[in-house]
Design a binder for these strands. Structure first.
Lengths: 165, 165
DNA sequence: GGCTGTAATGTTATAGTATAACGTTTCAAA
DNA sequence: TTTGAAACGTTATACTATAACATTACAGCC
């Protein structure tokens, strides 16, 4: 089996999620400073909402949340913040769900490979460079120059498959 | 490098596409007969439109085309036909584009691994079972039971990278 | 052939996702 | 302090998809 790093594991229902949010914000902060990017109040708040849990978050759910907090907000507000966060490598878009998750390893650029539980919606992010390289090699063999990959795996996480065998 | 089958190659601009359409319809026909599925006039027509070229086709483009042909048509008409074709394994959905392409190997079930040219939009479909298996194994190592994969690679096809180096 | 029940399609309405275009504010650097 | 670019506000609209219910088509039976 290939070497594989776990960027975001499946979390226990009981873990201290405030800590997840915190550490995500801290590393976002320093990641932005390093790159000379501005993590504004709005962007920071949207990032925080994306990290609300370990399940993908929809743009309009973020919007709704912002509106609860008396911020004037319209779709472009959210999509602009998400665009920034995507480009900054702080969140990933789950294409098959039209939704967003926090990135587990913003320090180094990568595309992300996602395991998505169809029962509880939990998402884990792994990084298996051997697989990414094998895909690039296969593409290259056809004269195709790959510059981006989307890899999303659906199934049942360990917890849910125990319950629903 | 892993063994890899090419289910739909990148096509020369000059190839005889009528033949592609024809062979897709013929194998769809027999695939449906084998599975006891009804390839109705509407479904057949939508499949034909998905195969209009080797680039992903959007649902509303299909809709527009149907309307030109005097068929009464509304979004559900198209989405229902596409659902059928997806379940029958005759087309794939490209998640990152919200669009559809004809399946190159409808005889055997598979998820499809797609190379998508960001210049000319051409799509090739490959089948690299070793990669699919490696992903399943990586998932399994985390206790995750994978039952579906989405793999989409973006980049430049050989023709376009020659022009745009 | 004529029934009959299910599958397929038609139709209307609406939900959900995303961006265009232009105006205003903010803020870092000169 | 000015100033210009980046960020954000605002309105409108485009694009993607499905719900819900009516009607039609069709295979299997008598």
């Amino acid at each position: 089996m290939s070497k594989r790093r776990i960027l975001v594991p499946f979390k226990k229902r009981t873990h201290d999620h405030a800590e997840c949010i915190d550490s995500a914000l801290v590393s976002a902060q320093s990641s932005c400073e390093r790159q000379g990017l501005r993590l504004t109040k709005m962007r920071r708040r949207v990032l925080e909402l994306v990290w609300r849990g370990h399940t993908p978050v929809k743009a309009y759910d973020i919007l709704e949340e912002l509106r609860k907090e008396d911020r004037a907000a319209a779709p472009p507000t959210v999509y602009r913040a998400l665009d920034f966060l995507l480009n900054a490598g702080l969140v990933h878009r789950i294409e098959s769900l039209s939704a967003f998750v926090g990135c587990g390893g913003p320090a180094t650029p990568h595309f992300g490979q996602f395991l998505i539980c169809r029962e509880c919606s939990a998402v884990a992010e792994i990084d298996a460079p051997a697989i990414a390289r094998a895909l690039v090699a296969d593409a290259e063999a056809l004269g195709f120059h790959a510059d981006r990959q989307t890899i999303e795996i659906k199934g049942l996480c360990a917890d849910c498959s125990r319950l629903d065998p």
